[in-house]
């Protein structure tokens, strides 16, 4: 596999966007956006060298296996793929990862997690969706629970979260539930994003734009 990236700074991937604009719209600095471009190049050329992240490349990065099927990884990919064209472009990658930045607004993290769990995109998390997600998690883990136990866990969680008792969890109920259980969105923060320039320092020698406060 050849190097597609650092030696040709003027050749950008399809969907490339100006780092200064992306930095103005996200919690990232210009330097961090440029470092993310290094990561993006690596991910987007891991299987198909076209500078776009395909689902198989996303799965390969997450699981070290391009054929790994995972409900949640699929949902994350679909949310990152804002244009719904089957690939993640650089701008989509940066804007979506911005939600996972430690400095991103808590309400953005809560809203993203809601959309993630609203599998059928109805604007509500329904009981069947919750059970489907629990079953998917059990399938990927070594944890074995009886169907009665799964039903009990889903019932209890739904009873606690669905405070309006209308059989579905809306965004306000989700927000209230997360405020009672903040650990639920722990995975919505990636501390790595604060150190991204250390993880991908090679852009520094060729950076074109100075950061400004």
């Amino acid at each position: 596999m050849g190097c597609f990236c650092s030696t040709s700074k003027n050749v950008k991937t399809p969907g490339y966007e100006d780092p200064t604009i992306l930095a103005s719209e996200t919690p990232f600095t210009v330097s961090e956006v440029e470092a993310l471009y290094e990561l993006f190049l690596k991910l987007s050329n891991s299987i198909i060298e076209d500078g776009l992240i395909h689902k198989e490349e996303f799965q390969l990065a997450l699981f070290r296996n391009e054929n790994e099927k995972n409900l949640f990884a699929d949902r994350i990919f679909d949310l990152f793929d804002v244009k719904r064209n089957g690939v993640i472009e650089f701008g989509e990658f940066v804007r979506s990862l911005g939600v996972f930045h430690p400095n991103a607004a808590l309400e953005d993290k809560i809203a993203f997690a809601f959309r993630l769990y609203d599998l059928r995109q109805t604007g509500y998390i329904e009981r069947e969706e919750l059970k489907e997600m629990v079953l998917a998690l059990l399938h990927e883990s070594d944890l074995v629970l009886s169907d009665d136990m799964i039903e009990a866990i889903v019932d209890k969680t739904f009873k606690d979260a669905d405070t309006k008792d209308d059989g579905r969890i809306d965004q306000d109920e989700w927000k209230a539930f997360v405020s009672q259980h903040p650990s639920l969105i722990k995975n919505m923060t990636l501390p790595y994003l604060k150190d991204i320039t250390l993880a991908f320092p090679s852009f520094i020698a060729r950076t074109e734009v100075e950061d400004s406060e």
Binding site: Y117, E140, L145
Partner: peptide, 26 residues
Amino acid sequence: VAPVTMNAFELISKSQGLNLSSLFEK
């Protein structure tokens, strides 16, 4: 035996598919 107090969303949040830190591993 899992306690019935287990939170379904807590369980779900443990999925490897939601662990994006893997993207940053070299």
